[in-house]
Write a protein that binds this DNA or RNA. Sequence first.
DNA 1: GAGACACTCTAACACTGTACGACTTACCCG
DNA 2: CGGGTAAGTCGTACAGTGTTAGAGTGTCTC
Lengths: 238, 238
Amino acid sequence: MMAPMDSVWTRTQPPPRDKVTRAQIVRAAVDLLDDEGLAGLTMRKLGGKLSVAATTLYWHVQTKDDLLEYAVDAVYAEIDVPGPELAGWRGAATLLAHSMRSTIIRHPWLPAVINQRISVGPNAMALSSRGMAIFSAAGFTGRDPEKTLAALISYVLGSAGSEVAWRTMVKASGKSAPEWTDEALAQALPAAEAFPDVRDVLEQRGRRNPYTMLDETFTFGLEALLDGFAARLPGTWT
Amino acid sequence: MMAPMDSVWTRTQPPPRDKVTRAQIVRAAVDLLDDEGLAGLTMRKLGGKLSVAATTLYWHVQTKDDLLEYAVDAVYAEIDVPGPELAGWRGAATLLAHSMRSTIIRHPWLPAVINQRISVGPNAMALSSRGMAIFSAAGFTGRDPEKTLAALISYVLGSAGSEVAWRTMVKASGKSAPEWTDEALAQALPAAEAFPDVRDVLEQRGRRNPYTMLDETFTFGLEALLDGFAARLPGTWT
DNA sequence: GAGACACTCTAACACTGTACGACTTACCCG
DNA sequence: CGGGTAAGTCGTACAGTGTTAGAGTGTCTC
């Protein structure tokens, strides 16, 4: 394991040339965002986490917005896009959708950041490429694979975005989901009285397990969308 | 027009009791957000726009986040939800979707804000209520109207969110859409070389009219989703 | 050995959201 | 009519933000 006469003094190439690398910064930023939310990411706090002055970060990253862009692309790498040969196009699309949803739930700051600047990082492009491959293999031609993938991603993003907004509020309150719902209904939502149907919806979310209800809602829309895709496949009688 | 001896000095009742009302503040905030984006909204700038000290705003609004919540709900009022009796459930849903999309495009900051806190203002609830009525009238029962509406809104939100991200970047560059696309491809996206299919998609967006392409993509997904809903209507043979 | 380079840090600037307390009115009650 | 209470506005101030400029450190190359 150790060469003879190897010691700190004889070693010629101390491996860590820099105190931090951009990859480390990005990873730490994602951690911080996960833990403390979008407003919790501060250059000084991030520097502290890496035992480095805040301004040091600016050597590796031009601006905080750029850092966010890096963070977004890093997270994109966590979404896996199965090839269509494994589960068929519908299975592959389903897996992609669920993987994307859980990635967003793991990184709740994602939707708010994504909707400000478009994502053109390498991981985002790889996702697009592999995602389009699913629908090309399914038989879509021309611009259809692009449109189909865009629709799928839009749905997942919107759905997960709402879900994340809900989860964030519950988490920030420190209460359990049913508790939160009850309190919110009782105290803070007198407006709901005017809309009994909406009130019922919110109430149910307090009684039954809210998370399985979110799952059901997500799957419902996903299946509907995929049915719509299937009906658009060339070779389908209408 | 003027009473005898009316002057600044004799006048006893200056009609405007308050210098600003909350409604005015919210409206000005929306305007500022539309013009300068989320980062452009500043309490001091907003105060200046209303000829009022920044701290005065805090009498009418507890916090900047609260102000954003008011702004979101104010914008929700612009989305119109037709009753199902007018255009049938599918027509009504289509109109709702398009109205929501154009509202978001008019207020590009909306998606980023919406995904941080859930919306429970009166206009948001009215939208939910009337939206669910569409699908109830269509024949959906139980929790299905809620799920269907959630899916529709999720899709619109996600789709418009991506669109807005794109539009914002193009607008911020000050260039025309094709110009922007060309430059972005040429200079800033060497990563695209590794994904020729993605590159083609981006390139086409530069050649053809990008806005009609966005329309097409939006409509494609919307129709697919509505087809999926139709297939789920009770009384449909599968 | 010397100079260039990569990297880090301290100090500072302009600006942010917001708390506090003082000030000016308009209104109500005796 | 007179005084007190509340509503509303403002100046000041504070802690914290992203970011710049310049000085400093060490390492690599000739």
